[in-house]
Amino acid sequence: MTRYVGRRLVDAVLTILLVLTLVFVAMRVLPGDPAAAALGDMATPEQLAAFRVRLGLDQPIAVQYAIFLWHMLRFDFGRSFVTNESTLGLLAQNLPYTLQLAAAAMVVGAVIGIPAGVVAATRRGAWADYLARGLSLAGFCVPEFYLGALLLIVFALKLNLLPIMGGGSGPLDRLSHLVLPACTLGLLMGAFACRLTRSAMLEVLRKDYVRTAKAKGAPRRVVIYHHALRNALIPIITGFGIDILTMLSGSISVELVFSRPGLGSVLVNGILSRDYPVVQASLVLFALLVVVVNVVMDLLYAVVDPRIRVTA
């Protein structure tokens, strides 16, 4: 187990190094001058030049890259070009909001998508199957920002059940502010989970052991949820792991629509203002989250399926 985890961690470090390099290159390739973005339209050439010198942007790219890696190694993410705020502090403030949103959306997605997929698979060809497939297809087609705006208008404005913007203060208020963003992302994730579960279940339901369980007279519920679903969970977990990536990018537009703090809005704003430290740190954190989720998913395989041994 230790060797397995160790290998996964080495992979993770290499992945992060690759991401760091890509992030560094991408920010420098992107048109737009961070000095002009930070100092505004009225800044003189001398002021822009002084800004670049102060932040080392006048150095050759190779030197900037070496300095960047050195800072990253020491977990020194620097300060925002625009606000002079500590980048790490900025991320630490926003991370809980993104984690809340991601966790709640996963719960919504799993609670809706997995049962719907099971029903669709076990009633293949029936109206319930068509309904589940139709809704999940619709879920794939609707962009997050549109669904978010729609939910806002219906549940916040017309029905006046939930707040429109912000993250809320205090547990209950925070929860009420979380419902609509989580449903927006969760419904889209549920659509994905439904299709994934359906196909995984259809595959498993054809297996001999399921037929055997049925022949032995096991109740339908036990056959489906105990024998079939548990064995279908591996691709579903993989799918959820992959979907985390989609969800993190989806959280950007959801946070924007609901004016909710979070890493997504920090990242977008950083890109728009060419705030290199903020963008770099945000993307590193995103990459870390993805890597951690992948490692967790790998470990979960062994948990949900004891046939998988971790001696590889």
């Binding site: 984690l99 991601a102 470990l299």
Partner: peptide, 25 residues
């Protein structure tokens, strides 16, 4: 020290609680 389903569930619960209760400073 082995990673089990129970460990996973406990860990997930702790993470969820941290995410739910954490917030702006």
């Amino acid at each position: 020290g082995q990673f089990t389903r129970r460990t996973a569930i406990k860990g997930a619960g702790a993470l969820a609680a941290a995410a739910a209760l954490g917030g702006a400073p």
